[in-house]
Design a binder for these strands. Structure first.
Length: 346
DNA sequence: AATAGATTCAACCGCTAGACA
DNA sequence: TTGTCTAGCGGTTGAATCTAT
């Protein structure tokens, strides 16, 4: 009796999620909360492995996710954080509450890496993503197993500090930022128009609504979607229908259509959390849900909470990273002198 | 208009850490 | 201590889409 495979190849669907599947998943999580992913496929009837469900939730359906182009500040933060943390996308994502690690990773690989290469001019044949870091860190994530490279990272933390200091030093910092901003704003850094996925998804949201109407009339195939899900599913479908109508009415399908749909879908306006507050800066693309607000506040970005509870250097660093205005106040001398003790960071 | 190459990003895969028995 | 299981992470892939010719 081997261990039951998470993604049993037989009978497990792969590939892009359909809107119907999304709704089933959202409905289920609305009702039961996230977690216990292993039971999700069983309880919902979704032909997906638990991993796939979790991924879909965390990367796409989870409330508070902002989609669409990254702001300059977000890009700067990613630059800084990547320099500081390396390719630890989940850690980086914890500083960008509205972005998923997958999003940040993709954005780094597709946009920022190139910007960085441009900034640096002709680079070594090695990966550009590590070039700006100190040699001590360069190969860490490539050739050293995770645990070991963590240790190496700690060993080399002072080297890293120096690298960061140099990058952010009084003279360099401004120019670094300027260069960054210039490079990031040089046209191709600006996304032209909404991502196609969003519009296609948005339009499909409308389709879901229609589809669901039919679905509600002729109840789902038994076994396809479990009974417990059906009630909230119906609720969701009604709201989805309204949302889809709204997105259609509001001047065609745009890049913001999806969040609007979801926002309307859950008629949620007052997610009073740090996440939503930070989201409010440019929250036209934020997906928020209501019932989930209490559940998800804690769940959606667990690391956030712990980060916010952090005191000391990491807290200040966080402030520096999150608050452009405070950046000046937290200059290099602080960065150099702050107790970058390994325990605080890792 | 057709095609090829480039780009994007959602999803998958494999691995690891942590919890638990 | 050891083995099992689950959740989570980072790297990679490939289909969809865009852009250039």
């Amino acid at each position: 009796m081997g261990r039951p495979l998470c993604c049993d190849k037989v009978g497990v669907k792969k590939g892009p999620w359909t809107p119907e599947e999304d709704i089933v998943l959202v409905s289920y999580i609305q009702e039961h909360g996230p977690g216990n992913w292993r039971s999700v496929p069983t309880n919902t009837g979704l032909l997906r492995c638990s991993k796939s469900c979790r991924l879909r939730w965390t990367n796409y359906l989870r409330p508070g996710i902002k989609r669409g182009s990254f702001t300059d500040q977000e890009e700067k933060m990613i630059f800084h954080l990547q320099a500081l943390l390396g390719n630890r996308w989940a850690a980086i994502a914890s500083y960008l509450p509205q972005r998923t690690d997958n999003d940040i990773k993709n954005y780094w690989n597709t946009h920022l890496k190139k910007k960085l290469k441009k900034l640096q001019g002709p680079a070594s044949p090695d990966d550009g993503d590590h070039n700006h870091r100190q040699q001590g860190l360069t190969t860490a994530s490539h050739s050293i197993p995770k645990g070991q490279w963590e240790r190496k990272l700690q060993t080399d933390i002072h080297t890293a500090k120096q690298a960061l200091y140099e990058a952010l030093s009084l003279d360099n910092r401004q120019s670094f930022l300027n260069e960054t901003v210039i490079a990031l704003g040089d046209g191709d850094g600006v996304r032209k128009g909404p991502p196609h996925q969003e519009s296609s998804y948005a339009s499909s949201t409308k389709n879901i609504a229609r589809l669901l109407e039919g679905w509600m009339k002729s109840s789902p195939k038994s076994g396809q979607i479990k009974a417990g899900t059906a009630a909230s599913f119906a609720n969701v479908s009604n709201k989805m229908a309204a949302a889809a109508g709204q997105s259609t009415r509001e001047g065609g399908v745009t890049g913001t259509a999806t969040p609007e749909c979801f926002d309307s879908l859950f008629s949620f306006n007052s997610w009073n959390s740090d996440v939503s507050q930070s989201a409010s800066a440019d929250d036209n693309n934020v997906i928020l849900t209501p019932e989930t607000s209490t559940i998800f506040q804690e769940e959606s970005k667990p690391s956030l909470e712990s980060n916010h509870n952090h005191q000391g250097p990491i807290k200040l660093l966080e402030k520096w990273l999150l608050d452009d205005a405070s950046a000046q106040a937290l200059q290099d001398d602080y960065l150099m002198n702050m107790a970058l003790d390994e325990d605080a960071l890792f």
